[in-house]
C-alpha cells in the first residue's frame, strides 16, 4: 500500500487514502478538523485556506498527493501560536469577523501576508487578501485588524 506522509500541525500523519482526494476532505472528514471551511469547492473563496510548508494554499483544490512529504498547518494548529493571539486580538478589537465562515481562512491569509511583509500597506493587504472572499464586512475592518496585528504583534513576524 502506497502511503502519503505529512506533518499536520506538528504531528506526523500517514495516510492510505487515494492521492486524488481533496485535501479539504481529508482534513474535515477523515481527520475531523473542521476549521477549514468549504465555501465554493473551486479555489475561489479561500475559506479552506491552509499553510503548506508555510505557504497559503486552497485545500479544496489541493490533491492529497501535493502534501506528500510536506508540512501542513491548519487553524487548529495555528491557534496555539503567539502570532495567532495577536491576530485574534486585532480581529476582535476591529470587528473583522462577522458571520465567521471566512475568518479562519482570513487568519491564515493574514499569517502568510505578515510573514512575507511584517508592515504591509493597505494596498498590499488588499492584494494579500484577494483570494479570500468575505460577504459580510466589506473588508475594511479586516484591513484595520491586520494593520493592528502588525503593529501590536511587532517582532513576531
Amino acid at each position: 500500500m502506497k502511503t502519503i506522509d505529512f506533518i499536520l500541525n506538528g504531528k506526523p500523519i500517514r495516510s492510505e487514502l487515494s492521492a486524488d482526494r481533496r485535501f479539504l476532505d481529508v482534513l474535515r472528514k477523515e481527520l475531523g478538523l473542521t476549521g477549514a471551511k468549504e465555501g465554493c469547492g473551486e479555489g475561489e473563496c479561500g475559506a479552506c485556506s491552509v499553510l503548506l510548508d508555510g505557504k497559503i494554499v486552497q485545500s479544496c483544490i489541493l490533491p492529497l498527493a501535493s502534501v506528500d512529504g510536506k508540512t501542513v498547518m491548519t487553524i487548529e494548529g495555528y491557534k496555539k501560536t503567539k502570532k495567532f493571539k495577536a491576530i485574534e486580538t486585532a480581529f476582535l478589537k476591529e470587528g473583522a469577523s462577522q458571520c465567521g465562515i471566512c475568518t479562519p481562512g482570513m487568519v491564515m491569509a493574514t499569517e502568510y501576508l505578515l510573514k512575507n511583509n511584517p508592515a504591509p500597506s493597505y494596498d498590499e493587504i488588499r492584494h494579500g487578501l484577494s483570494g479570500n472572499l468575505c460577504r459580510c464586512t466589506g473588508y475594511n475592518m479586516i484591513f484595520n485588524a491586520i494593520r493592528r496585528a502588525a503593529k501590536e504583534g511587532e517582532g513576531l513576524w
Binding site: G43, I56, I61, L113
Partner: peptide, 12 residues
C-alpha cells in the same frame, strides 16, 4: 503574476 491570481493560487 501579481494580477494573475490570489497568493494561494500562485503558491499552487
Amino acid at each position: 503574476l501579481h494580477l494573475f491570481a490570489s497568493p494561494a493560487i500562485r503558491n499552487m
